[in-house]
Design a protein around this nucleic acid. Structure first.
Lengths: 197, 197
DNA sequence: GTCTATAATACGATAGAC
DNA sequence: GTCTATCGTATTATAGAC
């Protein structure tokens, strides 16, 4: 019972902090912001986390866990690699509004940490690794075993570029048009048309 | 003479700050950092700039000016739009090491400001606009008048994606292989092969 | 385990001598 | 126009009562 409540409090801190780190950036989010958003008093937060960096580490772990669950869910729900790859691309739609306002959660976090704290950035890079591994599996199943990772990296790279420009110009319409193009690219690839590789 | 020295001091501040903002990020760069890097005493910096935001604004203006000069130089040096577009792609090589360590200067700045200060981000978006306009001209000259801006945005988007993943993985080799791909894409486009559009 | 009060520090910004 | 000393504030972090 005591442990359960303790876990819930810790979770509230992590979720609030994670949300703020995404929307405001890590350096631009103060301890007081986390206190206000989570409703957990200052001292109590320090009971769970010694430093702000530890909160970020927990937030990254939280994201890693959620992505794992999401990808496993996709693997269970969709049978063909093509369907799964299309589900990945559909992420651009699911999160269109947030992408426009705040950019890609993975990309913006890595960009920020890459300048200030390479150790933490290295941990945040695992977020990319999860997608890369999963996409590599899908492209391999699709019949591109030899170049599966190459294609996985390319797809993520394209998604990062789209996210960046969408955020820079606050233009969700452009996001949607590029997403449509990406779907066509994938369909052509599935049909064995390698001209776009 | 007095004015000249004044201008030089101001310029030293802007250049030092700009460098730090790129390498460490804006929020992660303190006033003291700028003092140390520029060698200009604190109070003197405040003589030229009232706030830290004003320094950033000046740094963005400095970048805008440098990009303008660079693009005009390219327009003068290279006669065909294809050569000019190749020169743009070659930026990925010129700046490979910095891209790997710190990411794209335009992209990372916009990503950071987009979370903290939308007004400043809007100003930083002009950095992208310069490249977009120039690339649009080149694609139009190349014969893609109707879709020149679309192609310009796509090329920048792809470059942003490449920069992001290069930075995330600290992998300059991958950067070079993607750059080679990009060059082939451009050559095909110049030959009228629109299959990759 | 929870919460408040507060310490310690780093920051952006100012005042004023030169 | 230059530079030093310092202010006020916001920040991370701690101490200690409950």
């Amino acid at each position: 019972m005591a442990i359960k409540k303790s876990e819930r409090t810790r979770q509230r801190i992590v979720e609030s902090a994670n949300r703020l780190f995404y929307r405001q950036g890590f350096h631009n989010t103060s301890f007081t912001d986390v206190v206000a958003a989570s409703g957990v008093p200052r001292g109590n937060i320090y009971y769970y986390f010694k430093t702000k960096d530890e909160i970020l580490l927990a937030a990254i772990d939280y994201r890693l866990e959620r992505i794992k669950v999401m990808l496993e869910g996709w693997s269970d729900t969709y049978r063909t690699p093509l369907e799964r790859l299309h589900r990945f691309i559909a992420l651009l739609d699911d999160t269109a509004e947030a992408l426009t306002q705040f950019g890609c959660p993975m990309g913006s976090l890595n960009a920020e940490l890459g300048k200030a704290n390479r150790a933490l950035q290295h941990h945040a890079a695992q977020l990319f690794a999860l997608f890369e591994d999963w996409l590599t599996d899908q492209f391999a199943e699709l019949g591109y075993a030899g170049r599966a990772r190459e294609l996985a990296l390319r797809l993520i790279s394209i998604g990062q570029g789209i996210s960046m420009l969408t955020h820079v110009h606050h233009d969700a319409d452009w996001l949607r048009s590029e997403r449509r193009r990406l779907r066509r690219w994938l369909d052509q690839l599935a049909e064995g048309d390698e001209s776009c590789l």
